[in-house]
Simulated assay, not measured.
Amino acid sequence: MVTIALYVGSGCTLVFDAVARETRTAAVADSSKLPLGTVHVQDNGTTPTGIHALVLK
């Protein structure tokens, strides 16, 4: 499964594995809509709450 976008309700630091299998870290603001392809959002280092994903199966 691959996400094509993430919505973050309460922002801070987001750590995720991109489609290219690279681990990336991003600082995000509250109520952010992020158009990015991810395969995994990591628990370790990720601090936002209310993360929702738009997914392709």
Rank of each mutant, 00 (worst) to 15 (best):
M1H: 10
M1D: 07
M1K: 09
V2C: 07
I4E: 10
I4N: 11
A5I: 02
A5P: 00
A5Y: 06
L6P: 00
L6E: 00
L6R: 00
L6I: 04
Y7H: 14
Y7T: 13
V8E: 00
V8G: 00
V8K: 00
V8D: 00
V8Q: 01
V8F: 01
S10W: 10
S10V: 14
S10N: 14
S10K: 15
S10E: 14
G11S: 10
G11K: 02
G11C: 08
C12G: 13
C12Y: 13
C12H: 14
C12E: 14
T13G: 03
T13F: 11
L14T: 07
L14H: 09
V15E: 14
V15L: 15
V15W: 15
F16K: 13
A18G: 08
A18Q: 09
V19F: 15
A20F: 11
A20I: 10
A20E: 10
R21E: 11
E22I: 08
E22M: 08
E22R: 10
T23V: 09
T23K: 08
R24C: 04
R24Q: 03
R24M: 04
R24N: 02
R24S: 01
A26H: 06
A26S: 11
A26E: 06
A27T: 10
A27L: 06
A27F: 08
A27D: 07
V28D: 04
V28N: 05
V28F: 09
A29L: 04
D30I: 01
D30R: 02
S31D: 06
S31E: 05
S31L: 03
S32Q: 06
K33D: 05
L34P: 01
L34F: 04
L34E: 01
P35Y: 10
P35F: 13
G37V: 01
G37Y: 11
T38Q: 03
T38W: 05
V39F: 10
V39G: 06
H40Q: 07
V41M: 09
V41Q: 08
Q42V: 05
Q42S: 11
D43H: 15
D43L: 15
D43V: 14
D43Q: 14
D43G: 14
N44S: 12
N44F: 11
G45N: 03
G45Y: 04
T46K: 01
T46L: 00
T46H: 03
T46Q: 02
T46V: 02
P48M: 04
P48Q: 01
P48H: 03
T49H: 08
T49G: 04
T49V: 11
G50Y: 02
I51R: 01
H52C: 04
H52W: 13
H52G: 01
H52I: 06
H52N: 05
H52Y: 12
H52P: 00
A53T: 14
A53I: 12
L54S: 08
L54A: 10
L56T: 11
K57N: 15
K57W: 15
